[in-house]
Design a protein around this nucleic acid. Sequence first.
DNA 1: GTTTACCTTTACGTAAACGTCAATACATGA
DNA 2: TCATGTATTGACGTTTACGTAAAGGTAAAC
Lengths: 142, 142
Amino acid sequence: MSQTWTISELAKEFGVTPRTIRFYEDEGLVTPKRDGQNRIYASRDRARLAWILRGRRVGFTLADITEMLNLYDLGDSRETQRVVTLEKCRDRLAALESQRADLDATIDELSSFCRLLEDWKAGTPLDEIRRKHNAKLRSVAE
Amino acid sequence: MSQTWTISELAKEFGVTPRTIRFYEDEGLVTPKRDGQNRIYASRDRARLAWILRGRRVGFTLADITEMLNLYDLGDSRETQRVVTLEKCRDRLAALESQRADLDATIDELSSFCRLLEDWKAGTPLDEIRRKHNAKLRSVAE
DNA sequence: GTTTACCTTTACGTAAACGTCAATACATGA
DNA sequence: TCATGTATTGACGTTTACGTAAAGGTAAAC
């Protein structure tokens, strides 16, 4: 038989509270089985939970995550339904990749500033540092 | 003299409402000059606004963004202060890069599913598709 | 001069994503 | 059997990030 988990085991593993997991259940994101009145989570629930939390970390709302999980849940093979799913899937991918561009730009800018701070540390005169680093930073920092 | 903008010009350009920009001012994220009682925004404000909105798009809270902008605002050259700033800056970068790993993983998984849908479209029998695509997807989708 | 079109402040409203009791059930070890 | 620990279901509270009137100032257009 395959492995199962209790709510607090998963909560501890993923660093969230049981309340959070129950909330996701209320929202229909996970659907654990029951042992009496206690919830028991199978590996599917665990995987979905991991997916939800990763989605949350990258800034998606639960509504977004719900939609993406629903994409996976497409069970039937109806052609039109599958085509719609594929479309939504591609839209989501486009959003994710646009977000990655934003993320890269943010990383670039912050690491530029980081290098400026490191140079400064070395005791270089201020105007030389200014010459070395572009004007993009100053436009934000004044 | 350098260019300036009104609140609604910036709102329109960045696709937010004036209310949002005023809110950011309340939070101390932008500090426009005044012409009488009307706000006038310089290029510094504009750049900061762009930074804020990009940070928002990648999932940071305004508190996070405030902290990052404060890093830039370091004006004095006190050594200990600068070292602390550099540390925070590196912490932020680590967070951003960890977030990018999450994002990449999400993109990978979603594009895998996308390819599965495309294969299915081609009319391949179901069990062949299952063989072709790994078990990772099924663990979420059942 | 008054309508139109913006701007302003103040203040209460709201949706999302949980936190935090409170009251209760159930198993288990002392 | 009684306490301890963990589970449950409501139900209300909280924070974030603005939305949405309400009530008014100012300046150009008609």
